[in-house]
């Protein structure tokens, strides 16, 4: 009866510019490309002696982390500082905010500080959307990971890595390997890859770690790593959380590694010039062999570097989108 609300629209201002960044799903190819182009310009800048630009001078960015993540938070913090923003880091333990009232109260308190942007990580899927729907109109919300749903900045830095090293998406076969079920990164990557026109997106893992309807998102399912890697250009490994053993998703790390660990031998199934990526932090000997992680095909450390540039791009675009929206009012 009801038309489902269009989640993608919440992210855009009336001119179709980004004002929040919550998910890669539903955004246009042009907009994703604009993020990549903007990020590229910041990558070049980070090689210069003066790394700062004044795009967010006078703005306050609040890193609102309901789930611990030193790495992601640090790259957001660095990105904000390179854009000359003031940064406030708030680590809020989830146990204190397991109920909605408290999240709403937290938001109301933070709004009283007149910040311009919330970078949000939260264990519940949809939390960033919820916050974007409830903040005052001028505050931009950047999703730094919500439950299993989305991690759009990670996906975009991965897209940037792929574009810089492989070029045109249309010719590429991309395989994502491991715990797809619990992965917000994989979901955001699948949407971004399909929008950017990737030739083929594959997901590889056991049935216990694959969402049953993942094909409807535009990914081909493989249960066998060797078959799934055949002729691919890009291999994206996902981190395996150790708690998956306790809840009967997998028998053991060793059996997982035996079947789905990326070894030199297995990588040989892919194209000779295939690149290897991982959102980090890596578990050596669980999802990936050390020799592959540190090998010539691995771009894992490059990804970390691009992370700052991508986050600078998204933050500056969202603030600009909010400003434009505000001027139009």
């Amino acid at each position: 009866m009801n038309q489902p609300c269009d989640l993608a629209k919440l992210q855009l201002n009336r001119r179709g510019q980004l004002r929040h960044f919550l998910t890669t799903e539903g955004l246009s190819r042009e907009l994703l490309t604009e993020i990549l182009d903007t990020a590229d310009s910041f990558v070049d800048m980070s090689d210069q002696a003066v790394k700062k630009v004044p795009l967010l001078r006078g703005s306050t960015v609040v890193n609102l982390f309901f789930e611990n993540s030193t790495r992601t938070r640090s790259t957001f913090e660095l990105a904000a500082k390179r854009l000359s923003a003031d940064v406030l880091n708030l680590d809020i333990s989830t146990s204190a905010t397991s109920k909605g009232e408290t999240l709403m109260d937290t938001l109301r308190n933070l709004q009283a500080m007149h910040s311009d942007m919330f970078v949000v990580r939260h264990p519940d899927s949809g939390a960033a959307h919820f916050i974007a729907q409830h903040v005052t109109p001028r505050v931009a919300v950047i999703n730094a990971g919500d439950g299993r749903h989305a991690h759009p900045t990670q996906a975009m830095l991965d897209m940037q890595t792929i574009r810089r090293h492989k070029g045109d998406f249309g010719a590429l076969k991309v395989a994502i390997v491991g715990d797809i079920l619990h992965s917000r990164v994989a979901r955001s990557q699948i949407h971004a890859l399909n929008t950017l026109g990737a030739g083929e997106v594959r997901v590889i893992g056991p049935k216990t770690l694959l969402p049953k309807h993942i094909e409807e998102l535009g990914a081909r399912v493989y249960y066998d790593l060797g078959q799934g890697l055949r002729d691919v250009d890009v291999v994206i490994m996902l981190r395996l959380q150790t708690e998956r053993m306790a809840s009967a998703f997998l028998p053991s790390q060793s059996e997982f590694y035996k079947l789905y660990g990326l070894t030199r031998e297995r990588l040989a199934q892919a194209k000779p010039d295939a690149i290897v990526m991982h959102p980090g932090p890596i578990n050596r000997g669980v999802e990936i062999e050390s020799e592959v992680a540190d090998g010539s095909q691995s771009l894992i450390l490059k990804q970390v570097g691009y992370g700052v540039a991508t986050r600078m791009a998204v933050m500056s675009m969202a603030v600009s989108g909010q400003t434009t929206e505000h001027l139009n009012e």
Partner: peptide, 11 residues
Amino acid sequence: AAAKAAPFAAT
């Protein structure tokens, strides 16, 4: 209202 004002799974 508060029972429904939270991210989906927490409502």
